[in-house]
C-alpha cells in the first residue's frame, strides 16, 4: 500500500516539531509516531497531552521537545482540557480577543489515558461535538508506570499486572475496540494508523485535522521495552501487526468503513507474536485461538468496509 516515493524528504516537512533531545527509550515506536503525527499537524495547532510516556519523555523541566503550544495537566482529562481550549478559542476570536487564526486543537493520550481512565472525558468531548482531533498512541499497556495491563492489552500478553504463570496465560480479556467506541459516537472521522506506514498515518492526521467536529485516530505504537522485542524491529513489528490482520488499517467516515489496505492473504499471527517476549509463554492452543479470532474479526471488518482509493494515493 505504501508506495515509497523515492525522494521522501521532498514530501515530508523537514521541521522537527517534536524536537530531538526527548528521553524516550531506544527505538521507541511511540516517539516515532508522535514525531510523524506532528509533522502532519504542522505549526498551527495547540496540543493537550495526557500523562504517560510521551509526556514524561518530552517535558522534563526546564526542557521541552515541543515547538508548538502544548499543555499537560493530568492523566484522564485530556479530552476535557481540549474541550476547554477549543471552546475558548472559538468564543475569543468571535469576541475579537484573539486573532481569527484557524488554530486547531489536538489531544494526545496513551491507550490507558484513552480507553481506560480517560474514556469518560473523551466520550463527553466527542458527544458534545468539539472541533478537535484526538490521537490515541496505543502501545498496549501502561508503559510509563512499568508495563501494567490496560484494556487495550492483547489477549495472552504478559504484563506486570497480567503476568503469565501456572494459573494464567497473561491477559485474559480481548483488546477493547476503542475505534468502534469512537464510531458509536457518530463522529465524522475515525481511523487507525501505524508509523510503519508513515504516509498513510500522515494523510489520516491531515484528514482528521481538516474534519470539522471531533476526529479520532488510533495509532498502534510499538514499544520495544514493554513488548520485549529488539528495538531495531520497531518499524517491522508495526508492519507485521498490519500484515497479520491483528491491527488492520482503516478509516470510518461518517459511519462508512474504508479499508486502507486489503490483504486477503493474511500472514500467520505467529510471524508477529514469536518476535515478542510478551507472547513467548503462550501454548499452541492459545495461539490458535488468537489466530481464529483475528481471522473472524478481519472478515467482519471486510464485510463492513470498502477498499478506498484516495486520489492522492
Amino acid at each position: 500500500m505504501e508506495k515509497y516515493a523515492l525522494y521522501v524528504p521532498r514530501l515530508v516537512t523537514k521541521e522537527e516539531i517534536f524536537a530531538p533531545g526527548h528521553r524516550a527509550c531506544i527505538g521507541c515506536g511511540e516517539a516515532l509516531a508522535v514525531r510523524l503525527v506532528c509533522k502532519a499537524l504542522g505549526r498551527d495547532v495547540i496540543i493537550a497531552s495526557a500523562t504517560g510516556c510521551m509526556e514524561i519523555v518530552s517535558s522534563q523541566l526546564p526542557y521541552t521537545s515541543w515547538q508548538v503550544p502544548w499543555i499537560h495537566t493530568l492523566f484522564e482529562n485530556t479530552a476535557a482540557v481540549a474541550s476547554g481550549i477549543e471552546a475558548a478559542l472559538k468564543v475569543m476570536s468571535k469576541k475579537g480577543k484573539r486573532p481569527a487564526r484557524d488554530t486547531k486543537v489536538v489531544a494526545f493520550a496513551g491507550d490507558g489515558g484513552t480507553s481506560d481512565i480517560g474514556l469518560q472525558a473523551l466520550s463527553g468531548a466527542m458527544e458534545r461535538g468539539h472541533d478537535f482531533l484526538y490521537v490515541c498512541f496505543d502501545n498496549e499497556a501502561y508503559m510509563n508506570t512499568g508495563i501494567q495491563r490496560s484494556s487495550s492489552t492483547p489477549f495472552g500478553a504478559a504484563t506486570t499486572t497480567s503476568p503469565a504463570g501456572k494459573m494464567s496465560i497473561g491477559q485474559t480479556s480481548w483488546k477493547k475496540n476503542m475505534p468502534a467506541i469512537a464510531v458509536a459516537h457518530n463522529i465524522p472521522y475515525v481511523a487507525t494508523a501505524c508509523p510503519s506506514y508513515p504516509f498513510d498515518l500522515m494523510a489520516k492526521v491531515a484528514r482528521g485535522l481538516a474534519t470539522p467536529g471531533p476526529a479520532y485516530i488510533h495509532v498502534l505504537s510499538v514499544c520495544p521495552t514493554g513488548w520485549r522485542c529488539p528495538p531495531d524491529l520497531t518499524v517491522r513489528m508495526g508492519r507485521l501487526a498490519v500484515e497479520t490482520g491483528i491491527f488492520p488499517l482503516y478509516e470510518v467516515e461518517n459511519g462508512k468503513y474504508w479499508l486502507s489496505d486489503d490483504s486477503s492473504a493474511l500472514r500467520p499471527v505467529t510471524d508477529y507474536m514469536k518476535l515478542q517476549g510478551r507472547f513467548r509463554h503462550l501454548s499452541e492452543d492459545v495461539v490458535e485461538e488468537i489466530q481464529r479470532r483475528v481471522k473472524t474479526e478481519y472478515a467482519g471488518l471486510r464485510r463492513k468496509a470498502r477498499r478506498r482509493h484516495h486520489e492522492d494515493g
Binding site: 495547540i46 493537550a48 499543555i71 495537566t73 493530568l74 482529562n77 476535557a80 482540557v81 481540549a82 474541550s83 476547554g84 481550549i85 477549543e86 471552546a87 475558548a88 478559542l89 475569543m92 484573539r98 472525558a121
Partner: peptide, 9 residues
C-alpha cells in the same frame, strides 16, 4: 479540566 484549558488560552 475544561476550565484549565480555557484559562490557558
Amino acid at each position: 479540566s475544561a476550565c484549565l484549558g480555557a484559562a490557558a488560552t
